[in-house]
């Protein structure tokens, strides 16, 4: 594997996480529990899709075959996507989305704090920008964890259940392979494993303040680094990519 190939896949991962998470959040549009939340969730979606655009554009540039960010978003198959499985899981109910948001935003907070110091200027630049937005996402998820966790017995139960169901998807966030190892040599990539203690502390303290029990580590799902996904990604892509599949190269 050349450095260029590694960097291409590494950048795709960053772009795919944002694209798939952004699309899931956009599914809340017009379905939020209250108007303010509808706006909040779609604002978060917009940040993610903007980030996806920036990273995929860079990935296309690294690949050097004249593709655009749209080509990468709309014309790759399921097995060519590298987003973490947690991002593609369906939105579920509001508590489930909030639990997902907390786990992902807390991870992204540490991820982009570190990546903003990457030796790759483009990755560092986009990451510094993303970090500012992620802070708002984290505070949003944190506030709702408090409210749902300490709210009614029903909201508490739903939030607790959501964290239990999602926990097995958190191991993958910190997974690394030969791509990470290669790119860590010159400071392009970051050591994801080293972020886990801080992430666990932060999530643990927010959950404790929300009277939610931190789930125990058990079996962890894996696969996305190799392009192996849950059954949900194919369905999601069939919607995202419908237009370009039905009318190739359509523009408007």
């Amino acid at each position: 594997m050349t450095k260029q190939e590694a960097l291409y896949t590494y950048t795709l991962r960053l772009g795919d996480n944002a694209l798939i998470q952004g699309h899931r959040l956009s599914e809340w549009c017009s379905r939020g529990p209250i108007l303010e939340e509808d706006l909040a969730l779609t604002n978060l979606a917009l940040d993610q899709i903007g980030r996806a655009q920036a990273f995929l554009k860079y990935a296309a540039h690294i690949e050097g075959q004249g593709k655009t960010e749209d080509d990468l978003a709309y014309k790759r198959g399921e097995r060519e996507f590298y987003n973490n499985l947690i991002t593609e899981l369906p939105i579920g109910d509001f508590a489930y989305t909030i639990a997902k948001q907390l786990l992902i935003s807390a991870f992204e907070f540490y991820q982009f704090s570190e990546l903003s110091k990457s030796s790759d200027e483009t990755i560092a630049g986009i990451s510094a920008k993303a970090l500012k937005e992620v802070r708002y996402h984290l505070v949003h998820a944190q506030d709702w964890c408090y409210r749902l966790g300490k709210g009614t017995p029903v909201s508490h139960k739903k939030l607790q259940q959501a964290f239990r169901e999602l926990w097995m998807y958190t191991g993958e966030l910190f997974e690394m392979d030969e791509i990470d190892q290669l790119l860590m040599q010159d400071g392009t990539a970051i050591d994801l494993m080293s972020l886990r203690p801080d992430w666990l502390n932060l999530v643990g303290s927010i959950l404790a303040d929300s009277t939610i029990v931190l789930p125990a580590d058990t079996y962890m799902q894996t696969g996305s680094r190799k392009g192996i996904h849950t059954e949900y990604l194919g369905h999601l892509l069939s919607e995202v990519q419908y237009l370009q599949r039905a009318y190739p190269d359509a523009t408007w």
């Binding site: 303010e36 706006l39 909040a40 978060l44 917009l46 708002y136 505070v139 949003h140």
Partner: peptide
Amino acid sequence: MISQFGSTACKAL
């Protein structure tokens, strides 16, 4: 503050 997220990405309500 009603919401950290308003009519556009840059504004809170």
